[in-house]
Nucleic acid binder design. Sequence first.
DNA 1: CAGTGAGCGAGCTTCCGCTTGACTT
Length: 649
Amino acid sequence: MLNKLIMKLIIVESPTKIKTLKRFLPKEYQIEASSGHVRDLPKKELGVDVEHDFKPKYVVVGVKQKAINKLKSAAKQASLIILATDPDREGEAIAYHVQKLLSAMRPAPRVKFQRIVFHEITKSAIERALANPGKINSKLFKAQQARRILDRLVGYKLSPMLWRKVRRGLSAGRVQSVAVRLIMDKEAEIDAFKPKEYWTINVNLNPESFWAEVIKKNNKKLVIQNKSTADQAVKDLKTAGYQVEAIKSKQLTVSPPPPFITSTLQQTASRLFRWSSKKTMREAQLLYELGLITYHRTDSTNMAQEAITQVRQYIDSTYGSQYLPDKPRFYKRQSKMVQGAHEAIRCTKVTRVEPKKASSAGQKLYRLIWRRFVACQMQNGLDQQTKIEIQAQKDKISYGLILAGRRIEFSGWRKLYPAGQPDVLVPDLKKDQQLQYLDLKSEQKFTQPPARYNEASLIKELEKRGIGRPSTYASIISTIQVRNYVEKIERRFHPTPVGKAVNQFLVSNFPQVIDYDFTAKMEDDLDEVARGKLDWQPMIKEFYQPFAEKLEKVAEAKRVKIEVEKTGKKCPKCKKGELVIRVGRFGKFLSCSRFPDCDYKASYQQIVKGVKCPDCGAKVIIKRTKKGRSFYGCGSYPKCKWASWRRPK
DNA sequence: CAGTGAGCGAGCTTCCGCTTGACTT
């Protein structure tokens, strides 16, 4: 058959790309997807020979067998195989392993392999890439391999240590352990926090009955720390004379936020819709598969040239030229950790304002992405900020008061994207104008402890430190909860006794591994490997040698006790011990403090208030599956088997 | 979707990062 000789096989990572590419390319090209990594270290063993230069053992990823079979049968027909995986470290490794797998086929395909890279899926970009094929960048692949091996060594050496020293089934890793540490350190900050007392005084003045805040005394910043100071000021202010001292006005330009990337999309959907990162990713995936948005796992704010041109035309024709900046906006990458294989998350067609094919949740997310996409190329907003300074004079003592206002002069991009604060108007006053005292409010306040992390703020913090990747943010959140290291209460993360014990163990024994800068240092080294300045084996060795020595030492250390939560009740079995709440693999349970002398145990029931079992009327409790997902169940189980994922009415 | 967990003896747990289905409460 003639076809057999001329068919060229292009291999990409994501199956969704197949359709798009087919539109651009002539029939002689067949396009298939690897669906991510096809070979990896084995799951059941370390798979790294630490005695022999860290030689890795790779096996085929079981769940990818179907995709691999497809690749293989296509490869048999092909005259040329073009590896078009993503243009980053992981993509290079995927290309390497795909080539390895396909070359090992019997009978061996006698085709050539080419590697191409493109940063946007447009006809011109792909044609350019096809015209300039290269080979696999083995330095970049080695950098990925070093990353993979390092993570394996950390994870598969530390985790068994925890099984022996704390409890079976636990885990540690370069990313998850630092995420847990962040939460623990925040808790320590909160514990150490001592609220400070302070007072605010606001004075109500005429004309127009406005309020101004007292901020100065005798031209110095005034901080009121106790009631007697506040009372003295109140006494003065009640009978003082008031006068406008100055009116200061200035214009502020307000730039739009950059287009969405994975982390900011998750944070914004969390803030506006109260969605979990998992929910956001699920909805984004569906939009991506419908071809409505660009790829949703990205750390880059770049946008395709054609998209910018289209959105600028759209802004000009829909909102008018005053909403269009002279030049397109480009957003810089925020850190060197950014890999930039993909574009920012944007709509594929700017004129598609409402996607009819999407679900209602999908439409909600789409509208958000659309607004941010268009807004990021719109003109700056312009605000008029006004500060009115007022002086209060009482005998020889003077107080300074302030009143701040802000008014939007030109909405700019905020015409589209939620801007936040509405206008705060100030009364129409003149310099030196006399004011009349009406009323006064003196309030005692206390400084607040820092807030615990929620999903959004934890992801933001991890991203800032370069820890984790867009494809893993949602799973990090899940892992630390499934392991029972932290629990979410009212959408915020709190430490559990197990999490505290594990963190304490790691901080005191392996401080370098869970150091906040460990990943950043690793990335620096990987850059060197990718640039050919450093070999990967010495890089791993430099880390592993001291790590292995430490592992040996720590093997001798004592078991770590997990702290228990007291209930204040007596054990009903032995009547001697106290009932305590322990955290096990399946969550909390009640037991006797005298364990193992007394083996009393009972399930700890987290009762849902105001809800009855729809089947038998008993109380409803929150339970967890083995996988860590929580569900509602009947309190009289096993007599009544009622259970539900959703909270009953 | 769940009968345990802490220990004990015997086989197992575990990492990070790239991707989608196959499950569906």
